[in-house]
Simulated scan of single mutants.
Amino acid sequence: MVAVRRAIASLLPAGALLLTGCSPAPAPAPAPVVTRTVTPSPASVTPSSSTPAAPPPSTPAAGKVVVLDPGHNGGNGAHPAEINRKVPAGRGQTKPCNTTGTATNAGYPEHAFTFDVAQRVGQALAAKGIRVVYTRQNDSGVGPCVDRRAAIGNDASADAVVSIHADGSTAAGANGFHVAYSSPPLNAAQGEPSLRLARTVRDTMRTNGFNTSNYIGGDGLSARSDLGGLNLSTRPSVLVECGNMRNATEAARMTSAEGRQSFAAAITAAIEAYLAS
């Protein structure tokens, strides 16, 4: 057998291999490579500190400026000399810098109500890409005076200025909201723009279930020549008296967080509607 193999080998070209049944089996073909993409769950993703925050949703009012003026301030009552000093109020008038505001019969103060509502409105507007400026940053300070409040809106070139208040009438059955505006107008902004803003706020609050005042103004609007913050404004400006804090039903609404949110939602919708018009 060995001799036969040698004979056959002698007939093959040099370097050729002689295959026999004892040769090793050929190597198996490599298994196909299977790939898959793994998407990490949101909880496992750690954003980079340099990742920019998602921009607010775009709305017709995005980029516009709104000044919110929550009436009075928590420290006013403890500083009578400061808030009683006279400041310019427009139309050749002077008036006290500010006042303490009113309160419900149970003692819930107007300054706390207005500050809370303004914060709710501001947060909702900012979420829509609207720039919000406040005339005061807390509810424990003093002032600012009415002339300074007007200047803040003017300096910000506000597209709308909304001052938030509540009334304190002791007249029997007095209830409802009204919207004040400067009249007769002292500049172009106090004319058609302010009147349109006043009407938009009035109409939107009505749509949201609020009744217009039955004791002041007419049809929910009140033309005023004595309010310094409105007289000194060169931007479209209104003052909203949200209701009567001395009325038991309205006081209950203003005192509850749910009630304050309902006021804020209506005012927010009104501002958005005005800016988009």
Rank of each mutant, 00 (worst) to 15 (best):
R253C: 03
K128F: 02
E192N: 12
E192S: 15
R260T: 09
G74Y: 07
C242D: 01
L230P: 00
A180L: 13
T59L: 06
P184F: 09
A223E: 15
V161L: 15
L230E: 05
S23T: 10
L197I: 01
Y274K: 00
P26D: 12
E192C: 06
A62D: 05
L197W: 00
A29I: 03
L17S: 15
S163Y: 01
G75T: 10
A43G: 07
P55M: 09
P184I: 08
I164L: 15
A174L: 11
A248V: 01
D203Q: 08
A29D: 10
G143R: 01
A270G: 01
L232H: 10
T204S: 05
V117S: 13
S140I: 08
S182P: 02
N175K: 14
N214M: 05
S182Y: 01
Y108C: 03
G173V: 07
A27R: 11
V4P: 04
A189C: 07
D203V: 08
P32A: 07
E272N: 13
V179T: 05
P144C: 11
N138Q: 07
G243P: 02
V66M: 04
A78E: 13
G209A: 12
V162M: 10
S256F: 06
L125T: 07
D139G: 08
D167T: 02
A16M: 13
P56G: 09
S262F: 09
D139Y: 10
N175C: 03
A273W: 04
S183C: 05
S213P: 03
C242R: 00
A151G: 04
F210V: 02
S225K: 09
G77T: 08
D139T: 07
G90Y: 01
T200S: 11
S262M: 05
Y274H: 00
V162I: 14
I83F: 02
L68C: 05
G209F: 07
H178D: 13
G15L: 10
A9N: 14
V132R: 05
G101N: 03
N187K: 09
G15W: 09
S140N: 13
M245N: 02
Q119I: 05
P80N: 12
G173Q: 06
E258V: 06
V87A: 12
N187T: 08
G71S: 10
P60Q: 06
A118L: 13
V117G: 12
D116W: 10
I271V: 15
N138C: 03
V45E: 12
V238I: 09
V132N: 09
A171E: 14
P96M: 03
S163N: 10
H79R: 13
G176S: 04
V161K: 12
L12E: 15
A54G: 06
L68H: 00
N211Q: 11
R246Y: 02
P56D: 06
V2W: 11
L12V: 12
R149A: 00
T37Y: 10
L227M: 15
V4F: 14
A81P: 01
